[in-house]
Amino acid sequence: MTFEKLHSDVKCNCTDKAESDTVNEYVRKLKKDTIQDSDFATHWERGIKPERDECEDICSYKGVSINQFKEEFEKLIVSKYINTFTINPKKGAHYLKFKLKEETGKVKFTPEDDDQSHYNLFKSDTFTLESLITIDIVKFA
């Protein structure tokens, strides 16, 4: 699995300490009730750049924010999605529950104070939506 696209325009090594994970389930909020390419586009790919020129920030903009779906975090994750929906319903009412294949990419644990199951997914050069194993699309609101 290669990450040339990911590292082509920066000097950072974003996949340092990131791992392949084909075992755990992850979730990501969708804009609609079906999965689209834009749902897995990173900020960096869209042209959104961080304020600081630090690798930590750059890599976070080059990754896709996902949450590892474990029972103890389910309530917190869904509550984050519901909070977003409550403030701006246009941000979507569904999330995708999925697993990664061997060649999908690598995940890095990047917890935050209020988001303890947060990971960044660094997509490999061959990533497409088919690289994801869809388990379910869940309507949460």
């Binding site: 909020k29 900020h43 924010s65 984050k80 999605y81 977003t84 403030i87 941000k91």
Partner: peptide, 9 residues
């Protein structure tokens, strides 16, 4: 106050 990909609030 709330972040989800973007600062939502």
């Amino acid at each position: 106050l709330h972040f989800d990909d973007f600062p939502i609030l």
